[in-house]
Computed example of a mutant assay.
Amino acid sequence: MKDIILSARGLCKSYAHNGGQNHILNHIDLDIYKGDFTVVMGASGSGKSTLLYTMSGMDSATAGKVIYQGNTITEFKEDKLAKLRQGDFGFVFQQMHLVSNLSLFENVAVTGYLNKNIPGAEVGKRVKELLEKMGLTPMSKRLPSQVSGGEQQRAAIARAVVNRPDLLFADEPTGALNRKNTIEVLNLLTELNKEGQSILMVTHDMKAALRATRLLYLEDGKITGELTLPPYQPLEEKSRETQVDAWLSSMEW
């Protein structure tokens, strides 16, 4: 039995719209398991990003609760949520949000230095190891504007995992990348997952979805389908794509 790392119970998110309520998330019950590469798919506007932001504490819920390590984080004050996002959770977005006047090394390191539980010397060591892992050592002193989009996203991933988070949230991390850079980023995320990093990612990209060990389908604010897959193997991609495509067709994607 897998360990649960994060749970949602009766999770709702609604917005007032034209005198009524627009229900983005509709009483979702969901467990995210340690070690899984969980990917959420669904049509545009189905609430994928809202689910990710609400479960990570970046957005508030209208009703229901999110539970992490026995704590109901939907009841946390903002300062406690900030500490949670700083240490226990990591984030990768479609836009990299790197600080333009800091080098790649500094962009990764600043997240580690903000975590008071990690000695400064340990932060520097981790950053060097991560940049080497991401293939960024030669450009570690360059500014974000001096490297490619794929290199920026790899630096953003390094920044997201420098504190060794329990769970990495990824919102369309390949959405702004070309095919070559997309594959490089997906390979890195897959490698991190095989090393034990738990990942929750939302995407509309089939190539990204193939990296999942667990696929969820979101429709009208509810989880309507689930597919479990073995860890990704490049030589099995074609058969995996056929399986995932058939599943998505059954979901009327």
Rank of each mutant, 00 (worst) to 15 (best):
F93S: 03
L177C: 10
L104D: 02
L177P: 01
E172Y: 07
V108C: 15
E219W: 09
Y33Q: 01
L136K: 04
L84M: 12
K125R: 15
Q95R: 01
K13E: 09
T54V: 15
A121N: 11
D166S: 12
M96W: 09
K133D: 10
E191T: 04
T224R: 07
R154W: 01
A246H: 11
N178W: 07
Q21G: 00
V127Q: 04
V40P: 01
E184N: 14
L136Q: 00
M96N: 11
T203N: 00
E106M: 15
T54E: 09
M55H: 05
N115S: 08
G19K: 06
E241C: 09
K125P: 02
L177F: 12
R9V: 09
N117V: 03
Q243M: 10
M1R: 15
E236L: 12
K77M: 07
A8S: 13
A121P: 07
M134E: 11
M201A: 08
A61F: 05
Y232A: 14
K133G: 03
K141W: 08
T38I: 09
K125S: 13
N107L: 05
K34I: 04
G64T: 05
A82W: 02
L188K: 14
Q21D: 03
I157M: 07
S49I: 03
K77T: 11
H27P: 00
E237M: 09
Q153P: 10
V99E: 11
E252W: 00
M139P: 05
I5Q: 00
L218K: 01
L167Q: 04
E191K: 06
K141Q: 13
A82E: 09
M1S: 13
M134Q: 10
I4H: 02
Q86T: 09
L227A: 04
W253R: 01
E151P: 00
G175L: 07
G45V: 10
Q152M: 14
Q86P: 04
N178A: 13
A109C: 07
N18D: 15
G196V: 01
Y68F: 15
M206D: 04
D31Q: 08
T242V: 15
N22C: 13
E195L: 08
E75L: 15
H27R: 08
D205F: 08
N18A: 13
K128V: 15
R240P: 07
T137P: 00
E129G: 12
D88N: 11
G149R: 06
T213L: 04
G196E: 02
V185R: 10
Y217P: 00
A155E: 11
V40R: 06
S7V: 10
P234W: 01
R126E: 06
M201H: 07
I28A: 04
G124E: 14
T174Y: 05
P234M: 05
N115W: 11
K65Y: 06
D36E: 03
V66R: 02
C12D: 13
A208K: 08
G221T: 11
T72R: 06
L216Y: 07
E195S: 10
P173D: 13
E172V: 11
A208C: 08
S49R: 02
M58A: 08
Q197C: 01
V123Y: 02
V40K: 04
L25I: 12
R164Q: 14
V244R: 03
T203C: 01
R159V: 03
E129D: 15
L114F: 13
L192N: 00
G135H: 04
G10T: 04
N117L: 12
T174V: 12
